[in-house]
Design a protein around this nucleic acid. Sequence first.
DNA 1: CAAATATATTTAGCTGGCTAAATATATGCC
DNA 2: GGCATATATTTAGCCAGCTAAATATATTTG
Lengths: 170, 170
Amino acid sequence: MFEIIDLPDKAALAKLTTRYPMLDVPALETWLGLLRISGDCMNDLDQFLARHNLSQRKFFVLILLMRNPDGLKVSQLAEGTGVSCATMTGVVEGLLKAGLITRETDPQDRRAFVVAITTNGQDLLDQVLPQHYTRIKSITACLDPGEQKQLQTLLSKIAFGLHETRSRKL
Amino acid sequence: MFEIIDLPDKAALAKLTTRYPMLDVPALETWLGLLRISGDCMNDLDQFLARHNLSQRKFFVLILLMRNPDGLKVSQLAEGTGVSCATMTGVVEGLLKAGLITRETDPQDRRAFVVAITTNGQDLLDQVLPQHYTRIKSITACLDPGEQKQLQTLLSKIAFGLHETRSRKL
DNA sequence: CAAATATATTTAGCTGGCTAAATATATGCC
DNA sequence: GGCATATATTTAGCCAGCTAAATATATTTG
């Protein structure tokens, strides 16, 4: 997790700039601010979910399964939550043990397993998601609708800049 | 790492709202957007640093040591980069092996070690930081100075909202 | 001054990522 | 039909976090 506590102050930044003239202080502050705040949000999410014995990964898997009542293959879960199949095997293992999902062989493809949410799993989501959504509403409550739109626009510009930077192979 | 690939579309969100009426769709979109983009930036940073055989943690440690030429204790490094002392022991181990830092007993406190950056370590930073700062400038280049200020303001409102939410123990 | 407490670091063992290789099954192409 | 290739999953082994307990040294206090 990104968690710089000891951020440079103005004096430190000035010194850095003499050593590294390409340093754009406002750009760095913007970037640091983004990663810092979002890191805090991420930690907060982890702590909230931990109270329900869930990790981010398990939580996302349950949500994906709720959206797909016919079940999903392990590989689809891996792709949908951005981890490898090997990792997803472990996540599925944990959720199975907790009784939150089922895993059955796919009648269409005997290589594959179809994973589906159980009543217990849905009950857990029905308990966690209302709190989760209430928290998210509270976290963003300081932004009026216009500001939320603004933030999303600015973030998408960053996403574009990131994409550009990568395609320029910097 | 936060990495939801399969975000809900409008139809899925509408369905969710009927099940969970407290769901504020724009708030959720704002929050998801923030964590998504910053997750992408984080992955990008990891990949960039990996090309120089550095992790985020090692990188931050080297930067802290550059800012503190007289060296820092293991506990100070742990605190400054947001990990436990136990974890920092491992990070220091790796940096020692790579010849980027030194570790000597503190003459003032024989329980402690003082860690300092070596010439090799500084040379590595002198190679990595210019690229790093150039990349950050490029990533944020789509935002003019006013927009950068705006983004920072909006982010600090989120930080405030997060703090409020936590102190309300939601 | 000696005992209790606090601080600095390390060790051991856990968790949850990862990749690469193994296994099983499907699919495509002669 | 049968071989080559592709896909789905698991296993094994690595890395980097974490906490709790161990060790060593400082500091405080009766």
